[in-house]
Each structure stands twice: as C-alpha cells, then as structure tokens.
Amino acid sequence: MIATDTATGPFDSTDEAVLRELRETAARLDPCPADLAERVKFALTVQALQAEVAQLTSQPELVSRTSATQEPAEATTVTYSTESLSIMVSVSREGAGRTRLDGWVTCGPAEVELDQGEHGVRRATADEDGRFVLADLPRGLAHLLVRPARGRPVVTPQFTL
C-alpha cells in the first residue's frame, strides 16, 4: 500500500515545516492566556505557604499627598483584608520609571515581602505601628506577602506598581 510506504518514510524537513506552521496556527487561534502562568505561580505560593489570600476591600482611589518637600504627589491606595488583618497599600511614582510603596498592616510588627516576579523579591519590616516602606522599585506586577508575628502568612492578589 502506498499509504504505508510514505508513512514509514523518514521524518523530513517538510514534516518539520508543517508542524511549525501548526504550532503557529494553534498559538494564534487558541493562545494560552498571557497571565495563566503568573496565576499558577501565585496559586503555588499560596499553597506552599499555607497562606490566606487577602481580598480587595477598597477600590483603587487616587489620593493627593504632600511630601516633605511640599511637592504634591499622586498616589493610588488600595486595601486588602482577611478576617484577621488588613493591608493598605499606597503606590506613588518616583523619578526615572521607579515606584515607591507605602504600606500599613493592622497586625503591628511583621515581616513583609514584595514579590515582583522576574524582578525578584524585596523585603521590609513593618514597625510597631505596622508601617513599612519600599522605595526605588521597578514598575510592573507585584504581590505582597505579610508574615505576622502570630498566625498564618497573608498574600495579596497581584497589583500593578
């Protein structure tokens, strides 16, 4: 049978080209959602830390802030909460494409990690009042991990810096 003859022929460059074209076609017609890998990684983090996921409890709002130098700066503030604590995050622009994050947690002193994916992890310590600052951050997606002195760690969903 002729069909058998060509089916047992060696895999050649035309076969390669057909499969390459098929990959291109499937990827265009039915692409993997761009943020799926990010969401999987987030779910893995939550699972690994046995963390609680804080929910967004206030919509982002623009607030005007007056800095020490009297220059008004705009900041976006959001709040994430679990049953046991709230995390307020205020993001403002710094020069040269950098960003500053002012945070406040209701649990008092805590270890805080900001995960910026490929940009790495930055750490800070929230003081007795629960305040912490992370300055000179690259822009992009990030989420916070808060480790209170007692209780389970808490992660926020991703937000944009």
């Binding site: 069909a3 060509t6 089916a7 047992t8 022929g9 060696p10 895999f11 050649d12 035309t14 076969d15 057909v18 499969l19």
Partner: peptide
C-alpha cells in the same frame, strides 16, 4: 511520529 513520519502526519500531508 518520528523517526518515521507516521500515519497521522502522513494523512495530513496527503
């Protein structure tokens, strides 16, 4: 499929 073309790819090529 591979090292020979195999039936599936052969059908498609035809």
């Amino acid at each position: 499929i591979g090292p020979t073309r195999g039936r599936c790819l052969d059908k498609l090529r035809r």
